[in-house]
């Protein structure tokens, strides 16, 4: 029974892929309308060296954007928690940045910053920064006052409150934000490349789409999904490294 429960999600995916494959073959749907899963896998294998080259660029942009978002997000998160006035000033601006679609902002970034990596990295930052700041500052604010009073009665300073209690307790909340941000990071880089670039998965995607090579588009989408999962895995690894409770549960 346990094995069936474990295998159920995989089984559902296989059934869906089977229906898809059968529909394309029986309905003789042309490649430029809908490629079958087998054709997608075949193209993925064939195009792998090219895709890998473009993947390197996208991953570089995504990781740089994530790194910047993480560093800035931590600092802004602490400032939001420590200074209510700062929170009142910055929070509406943060929310506004999320209301404008990235697809609208990306071309503006390119006008200002050119065709290099910078506008793509900024797109990633814009998408990843918000979930990191919100999750981290929320985590910092949710600490039981008893723990903070305990540190105060021991003569601890504000620095001690953050180092000993607040930041470690906010790690679980931060990890949730990082998981969302990690998934967004690849999409952000791809969107940036989509608008204007000469390399990266977004560039590959737009060229394949313009040529109606939908098997290549699907192969690229599979690559993007795998990368997003990989980024998610990296966040889990980070959580495993920084949270001793997670290591013990393993």
């Amino acid at each position: 029974m346990k094995n069936i429960t474990r295998a159920a999600p995989l089984l559902v995916i296989l059934i869906l892929l089977g229906i898809w494959e059968l529909t394309v073959r029986v309905g003789q749907i042309p490649l430029y309308v809908l490629p079958s899963p087998s054709a997608t896998v075949f193209t993925l294998a064939e195009e792998f060296p090219t895709l890998l080259r473009h993947t390197g660029i996208t991953v570089l942009e995504a990781l740089t954007g994530m790194g910047i978002s993480f560093a800035v997000g931590i600092i802004i998160g602490i400032l939001i928690d420590a200074m209510p006035t700062f929170k009142r000033c910055i929070y509406p601006i943060l929310v506004v940045t999320q209301t404008v679609p990235v697809i609208v902002l990306a071309p503006i970034f390119i006008i200002y910053m050119g065709f290099g990596y910078a506008p793509k990295i900024l797109t990633v930052v814009l998408m990843c920064f918000f979930p990191i700041v919100v999750s981290f500052s929320d985590g910092l604010g949710q600490m039981d006052e008893g723990y903070l009073n305990l540190i105060r009665t021991y003569g601890g300073s504000r620095f001690h409150l953050y180092r000993i209690v607040k930041i470690p307790s906010a790690m679980i909340s931060l990890l949730s934000g990082l998981k969302v941000a990690a998934t967004y990071s690849i999409s952000g880089a791809v969107v940036g490349e989509w608008i204007a670039s000469q390399s990266g998965l977004g560039y590959y995607l737009i060229r394949a789409k313009n040529g109606y090579m939908l098997d290549k588009v699907f192969a690229c989408v599979v690559m993007i999904i795998l990368l997003s999962l990989l980024m998610n895995g990296l966040v889990k690894l980070f959580g495993w490294a920084v949270l001793p409770m997670k290591r013990r549960r393993k």
């Binding site: 039981d144 008893g146 009073n149 305990l150 000993i164 790690m171 409770m245």
Partner: peptide, 11 residues
């Protein structure tokens, strides 16, 4: 000061 809860940091 020892409060009612043990307030041990779980991590």
């Amino acid at each position: 000061y020892m409060p009612q809860n043990d307030l041990l940091l779980p991590w």
